[in-house]
Design a protein around this nucleic acid. Structure first.
Lengths: 175, 175
DNA sequence: AGCGTCATGTAAATTGTTACATGATTTT
DNA sequence: AAAATCATGTAACAATTTACATGACGCT
């Protein structure tokens, strides 16, 4: 059991999902391609931690977590989490700003802003859509709601940093 | 040339560094172990994008970027950056909160707060230490300063989210 | 004397990405 | 009619981590 296995397992706590849907949920905080998800699901099924509860149209397989899977998740929750890991190419570029010019630096920040504006828009829509759910569904989505709110807050903070950085850059190249 | 190679190259724009120091700079925004850094440095040297300018005590090798390396960095800056990637095990655990109890949920958040408190403390000290540098050194560290400020801001936002989440969790389990 | 940090490197094992494959359904 | 999205899966390749190896230096 590696970390991705636990993460996949955790996604099925909220409700049964297809591999495709599961990937979308998990991509909120964990980067993984479908070519990693499907073999992981296969393996988890082999270990009887998840099961296929339906194949509605011959292709889509709906997975659900088994009681054994739920047990494992509850144990995993108490293990020390790995520190969040990040890889951010943009920041490596920012590191080189003292060797760049004003326009290149501002171009970098502009692109960054665009990216996080989209993030805020996209995830705000998803979060807003939770309001349409009935009380029970809403309750099931509580963890997801917390994570979505975090994503939006952090994206807004990234935007705030961009604004601050723009001014700093302006001052840096003015001198 | 993969992304880690560019990231390593970028670190040497500010000043010459040993592999060990370089890793510490880069870990601000890019997770990589020393077992990945040293072979990368070896390969970049083979391609004459970096060079060893000193071995002060027989073991530490001080690397500097070559003019060819600088050229490459300047080209790379204009390429479209990969979206920042993250892997955050804690958030997978938060996803399962609807299947946990109040105390377990609050314990998770508490641990998270501890982590980001440390981050804020550690990086604030590093940022503050930049004040002691002379004007020229300060200028060279401009990119680093921007990145440190971002790290601190985002860590504080993580803490703010934790506070918000704690209240939400309280309300969730009160019902 | 033991621990933590500094410091560099390689090899084996694991993880993750890109490319290959296929096909339905929906939107423009 | 073409493009995008939904949908699943495998194979080859590349990146990354863990373990193996070694040793200095400063602190308690």
């Amino acid at each position: 059991m590696n970390t991705i296995s636990y993460v996949v397992l955790a996604m099925l706590i909220r409700s049964p999902l297809t591999g495709y849907e599961l990937k979308r949920f998990l991509n909120l905080f964990w980067e993984a391609h479908h070519s990693q998800i499907y073999p992981t699901l296969k393996e988890l099924r082999k270990q009887e931690l998840i099961e296929i509860i339906d194949i509605p149209d011959g292709k889509r397989k709906i997975y659900d977590i088994t009681p054994a899977g739920k047990e494992l998740v509850k144990e995993w929750v108490f293990t020390k989490s790995h520190a969040p890991s990040q890889k951010d190419e943009f920041l490596a570029k920012v590191f080189t700003i003292s060797a760049l010019d004003r326009d290149t630096s501002k171009f970098l920040i502009m692109e960054r802003k665009q990216y996080f504006h989209e993030q805020v828009n996209d995830y705000s829509k998803v979060l807003a859509s939770l309001d349409d759910l009935d009380a029970e569904e809403r309750r099931k989505n509580f963890g997801r709601e917390l994570i979505l709110e975090r994503k939006i807050r952090l994206s807004k903070e990234e935007l705030a940093w961009c604004d601050w950085a723009e001014e700093k850059i302006e001052a840096y190249f003015a001198k």
